[in-house]
């Protein structure tokens, strides 16, 4: 985990149609080269002309997806181990989901029951505790599996990866910032870890959006309230890189969350407390300095009772001020204990 060597981290809303990355870069006075990571786009990783244009020729794509493919071509043992691990992860996620769905069903049934308020309140807490235990157990197992894998195969020391890491180190040495795009979050996280990108982040300002923002938080939570097969539960995928602590990043809330469903949002928030669930619609932005979050624009926290202050942001090119939404606990009654406000770690 990176500790204090990152000058600033900026989380942004979706950049596809109305990018605000340039504004954020300007605001922080970043003038040097910017390493871009678009590995979440998988095979389309190099389809990054728009991003390059937006960064006015300062972007250097680290091509982590392609590098990963190269590593697997050269290191068959690692490829086989990687596939085996993917199978294990799929099983873990599947069994976790079975347990989770039953716990959520129980929570829902209990929530519908009539009983004295104090009993209901106590039972509601117990329901959430049960769900939190399932989440925590899953996260622990993912972490344990990853450590076992790393200890057994020592990926960063393998020649195929070490070669790429040397190249990456040289490229990043010349860059002032790293910009991490969205895409497939599991795939992105996999490539970030495969090449140990956290080791190279020291001293760099980080910009990340959508899946990128999720991947650098401390816990990746998958969510979609309206998939075609019916609303499923938000799921913990794995630990993220942990550049930003105590937040659960929720990109595209305007499409992916039922923002009017307080009961559903309430369960989500309580599951992940004391971390703050920060929803990041298009054009939103939150900047973390070492002192904590500053200049939030358009992002909003889901409160403990499932309410929030979302209003579609105005379409101005820059700057917050009158429509800024404060994500600090005091303004939104976020269920955080003192000292656990979103932090840069």
């Amino acid at each position: 985990m990176i500790t204090g060597e990152i000058p600033a981290i900026v989380l942004l809303g979706a950049q596809r149609y109305d990018p605000t990355l340039g504004d954020a870069i300007k605001e922080l006075g970043v003038t040097g080269k910017i390493a871009t990571i678009t590995a979440g786009w998988q095979e389309r990783e190099d389809d990054d002309e728009d991003l390059k244009e937006h960064l006015q020729g300062r972007a250097i794509n680290l091509a982590l997806h392609a590098r990963g493919e190269d590593v697997f071509r050269k290191d068959k043992e690692l490829l086989s181990a990687h596939r085996e691990r993917q199978t294990l992860l799929r099983h873990r996620q599947d069994f976790y989901r079975v347990r989770l769905e039953h716990a959520l069903d129980a929570q829902h049934v209990i929530d519908q029951r009539a009983a004295p308020d104090d009993i209901l309140e106590d039972e509601a807490r117990t329901s959430i505790d049960a769900i939190r235990n399932i989440d925590a157990l899953h996260l622990d197992r993912c972490t344990r599996d990853r450590r076992e894998f790393d200890a057994r195969y020592r990926p960063l020391e393998r020649p195929a990866i070490a070669e790429h890491r040397a190249q990456l180190a040289a490229i990043l040495d010349d860059c002032e910032a790293i910009a991490i795009s969205g895409g497939h979050v599991a795939s992105l996280l996999n490539r970030l870890r495969l090449f140990g990108i956290a080791d190279f982040a020291h001293g760099k300002t980080i910009f990340a959006w959508c899946a990128g923002a999720m991947a650098i938080s401390e816990r990746v939570v998958l969510f979609h309230d309206s998939p075609p097969q019916g609303p499923g539960a938000a799921e913990v995928l794995d630990a993220g890189l942990g550049f930003v602590g105590d937040v659960v990043v929720l990109p595209q809330p305007e499409f992916r969350l039922r923002l009017g469903d307080r009961a559903r949002l309430k369960v989500m928030v309580r599951r992940f407390a004391p971390a703050t669930c920060i929803a990041m619609p298009a054009r939103s932005r939150v900047t973390w300095l070492r002192t904590g979050p500053t200049a939030p624009y358009g992002a909003f926290a889901i409160r403990d009772d499932g309410t929030h202050s979302f209003e579609p942001p105005p379409r101005s090119r820059s700057g917050p001020s009158s429509t800024s939404v404060d994500i600090s606990p005091s303004s939104t009654a976020i269920p955080v204990s003192s000292g656990s406000r979103p932090r840069l770690v």
Partner: peptide, 13 residues
């Protein structure tokens, strides 16, 4: 989509 959920839950861009 219930039998074979696609990457919708995994893709944020």
């Amino acid at each position: 989509s219930w039998l074979f959920p696609g990457p919708l839950m995994f893709v944020y861009e």
